[in-house]
Amino acid sequence: MRHAMGNRKALSLTLLTTLTLAGASALYAADSPPANAATADYKAFKFSADHPYFFQDGKVDFGTYNGFRRYHSECHVCHGPAGMGSAYAPALMNSMKVLNFDQFVTVVIQGRKGLDNRVMPSFASNQNVLPYMSDIYAYLKARSDGVIDVARPANFPKAKPDPKPAAPAPAAQASAATPAKP
């Protein structure tokens, strides 16, 4: 299911099968700019695996903020608050310096076994992770780049449809204005 979160296309199950073959960065290929973002810069910003987050005036895009939330729901119990690591799993804000998006997605989907009985499970069936992998990646990349600190990042609002769409049917407009929650 497509997701209204952030400004980038969420990952779908059908995409998943092609991911490791075609490269996860294909996720970003069809992205369109946000419809009514807070600034012209935000509106024009092209998200990509190399530019996974938008940051301006102390605020991140909603997807990156969602990455903060999802990370602290699903990942932080092992990887520590704000990607800083814990007694038993690596600090992802450091890992992001060497992991590209394709590698990140591969580890999340396939899992990994490391030294000292360290185990990263597969999250391939986790509907609270899978659709938001690009958001989580964006958040950790922003942490790794030192753009945001350990605290909850301020964010631009969730992207909403353009107030003056070209010619949608009234019913479609109403449903689009209240996007499904995750």
Binding site: H72, S73, F123, S125, Q127, N128, V129, R152, K181, P182
Partner: peptide, 23 residues
């Protein structure tokens, strides 16, 4: 703490948490 709950779906054997905490 700060505590932000949000919707999650259940998958057997996967985390079922649904909140972000800052302490």
């Amino acid at each position: 703490m700060d505590y932000e709950p949000f919707k999650v779906s259940y998958t057997a054997g996967q985390p079922y948490v649904g909140a972000t905490l800052t302490m």
